[in-house]
């Protein structure tokens, strides 16, 4: 159904040293694959290990164990090239509020080695697509939340990356509509993977929210 794997994660683990709690296993042996063109949803409650997994994939954190490739590139050895193929959008948007959308998107374009000749038409295209032109030269702190979200999307797409990591805390119904496959992560481990249909068949529930809660309670029953 989908092309060869764009993301391949094998036995990924991350242990943080916490002064009070000692070693904390944020991610504990996670493996999954995402094919070309596939939308994969990683769902989990707070503290499940989603952020840490995604940060490792974005090469922002180094894993304690395991391996991962992105578009065939090893994320540990080819950090820069991996990041060049990646668009990373977090729920906080991560915008510099004193800059204008034009300055911000240009900055990330330049970081991705886009020069003026390629950057200008690309920004023009994105600004038209997302309706940013009319506020392109207004400082971001003067923009509404909706406008900022569009700027954040333009920033993520400016270098036309083949892989997108969209990190958000949005409603589960969105994941149900959008995702080709869903992985449920809890306490650092993947508890279930499949299409919505497969997960429905496995749990006997129809809505993703119910499926999710059911899988979590099963995981709790397994002893976490």
């Amino acid at each position: 159904m989908f092309g060869p794997d764009m993301i391949s994660v094998r036995d990924l683990a991350k242990v943080f040293q916490d002064k009070k709690r000692g070693p904390v296993r944020a991610v504990d042996g996670v493996s999954f694959d995402v094919g070309r063109g596939e939308i994969y949803g990683l769902l989990g409650p707070n503290g499940a290990g989603k952020t840490t997994t995604l940060r490792i994939l974005a090469t922002v954190l180094a894993p304690s164990r395991g391996s991962a490739t992105l578009d065939g590139l090893d994320i540990f050895r080819d950090g820069r090239r991996v990041r060049q193929r990646l668009g990373f959008l977090s729920g906080d948007m991560g915008l510099y509020h004193r800059l204008t959308p034009r300055e911000l998107v240009a900055f990330f374009g330049r970081l991705n080695s886009l020069d003026g000749a390629r950057l200008r038409p690309r920004m023009d295209e994105l600004f038209s697509l997302l309706g940013i032109h009319e506020f392109a030269d207004t400082k971001i702190d003067k923009l509404s939340t909706g406008m900022r979200q569009r700027v954040a999307i333009a920033r993520t797409l400016v270098h036309d990356p083949p892989v997108l990591i969209l990190y958000s805390t949005h409603v589960m119904e969105e994941a149900e509509c959008l995702c080709d496959r869903i992985g449920v992560i809890h306490r650092g481990k993947i508890r279930a993977v499949g299409t919505i249909e497969e997960l429905r068949a496995r749990t006997g529930k129809s809505r993703l929210r119910e499926i999710f809660l059911d899988l979590l309670s099963l995981a709790e029953g397994d002893g976490g």
Partner: peptide
Amino acid sequence: ERRTLEILLAAPAS
């Protein structure tokens, strides 16, 4: 505090 550091580090700059 503004949560921009993570985005900067996920960009190709070393």
